[in-house]
């Protein structure tokens, strides 16, 4: 590894990317990017006045500062400790899967032969904490939001798992290093485009991006599961979805886009970062493109087309692995 001497690969992974710094940095960049892109599509400027030479990049930082130093209100009808703890746990749990995903050879916190599979499962388990959060808030909007979140989870869970499974079957491994090694010839997108499409749509559903922004539909349920929160806790409750996007796009870059290939070391990390954009940019743009589906329409897509596509992707993988 060509990192400066006191830092080994796993420490870089823990501290910089995809660890703590990466998560918070992504939060800032993603919020800025989303506002900027949507604004530009709608012929507006978007964030501008904070740090004008950077195109307003520091606007989310200013917003986060403002939120941290705004009054923390703990509503009277809730369990105060749980009310404060659940968003922290949610944010933490959304970030946890990066432990098993590699950003470059050796840049992984816990190398494991089933690493990517564990990461997928961890991503899918977080819905529990979302429900717990809504439960502690004890508000009708949070209840409805959590209910929608669970229904949506039911819609994307299986296709997401099947898409990942298809890739694991194709590569014959779930070890992040070996998965990328196998892709040194052809990337996963080309080996199994069906799985890629399913993964992209499931990613939009999992992070409740726009056509599926059903749990926090503003005109209907205020902010869904985050309604009661303010101050720092709001950052966590609301930012958790961005962290999930971060994790899923990192996972997608490794699974489908050949991860850090064709480089290694610091350059490899940068390449992985760039490839995440393939998932992040559409996820940001959809806010300007789509209206919102009704929950039944989202469920129909999840259990209909998406499930059929993901099953086809698994079959494709089986055939490909058999022929190969």
């Amino acid at each position: 590894m060509d990192f400066p001497s006191p830092l080994s690969g796993d420490l870089v992974a823990a501290l910089v990317f995809p660890g703590v710094l990466g998560i918070f940095g992504f939060l800032v960049v993603a919020i800025w990017l989303e506002r900027k892109l949507v604004a530009r599509v709608q012929w507006r400027y978007g964030p501008l006045y904070v740090s004008r030479p950077l195109g307003g990049l520091l606007q989310p930082v200013a917003d986060l500062f403002k939120l941290v130093f705004s009054e923390l209100v703990l509503p009277r009808h809730t369990n105060r400790l749980l009310f404060a703890a659940t968003p922290i746990l949610l944010f933490f749990a959304e970030g946890l899967p990066v432990v098993f995903i590699a950003a470059a050879p050796g840049v992984v916190m816990a190398p494991h032969s089933y690493g990517l599979a564990i990461a997928v499962v961890l991503v899918l388990l977080v819905a529990v904490l979302m429900v717990a959060m809504a439960w502690t808030e004890a508000d009708k909007f949070t209840y409805i939001g959590a209910m929608r979140e669970i229904l949506l989870t039911a819609a994307y869970e299986v296709p997401l798992l099947l898409a990942a499974l298809a890739m694991f079957l194709l590569y014959g491994t779930a070890d992040p290093h070996k998965v990328v090694e196998v892709q040194s010839g052809l990337w996963g997108v080309l080996l199994n485009p069906l799985a890629f499409v399913v993964y992209l749509v499931a990613l939009l559903m999992a992070t409740t991006r726009f056509p599926f922004e059903i749990p926090e539909a503003e005109p209907e349920v205020v902010l869904g599961p985050y309604t009661e929160y303010g101050s720092t806790l709001f950052i966590y409750a609301f930012g958790a979805n961005y962290v999930k996007l971060y994790v899923l796009s990192l996972l997608g870059a490794v699974l489908f886009l050949g991860g850090w290939l064709p480089a290694a070391g610091v350059l490899g990390v940068l390449i992985t970062l760039a490839k995440m954009g393939v998932f992040v940019l559409p996820a940001m743009l959809v806010r300007a493109i789509y209206p919102r589906y009704r929950i039944d329409q989202a469920l129909r897509i999840g259990w209909g087309q998406l499930l059929a596509l993901s099953a086809a992707a698994v079959l494709w993988s089986l055939l490909a692995a058999w022929i190969w």
Binding site: L37, A39, R40, V41, Q42, W43, R44, Y45, A288
Partner: peptide
């Protein structure tokens, strides 16, 4: 549309 000049 991304590359249109803003109207604001």
């Amino acid at each position: 549309q991304l590359f249109q000049p803003p109207l604001t």
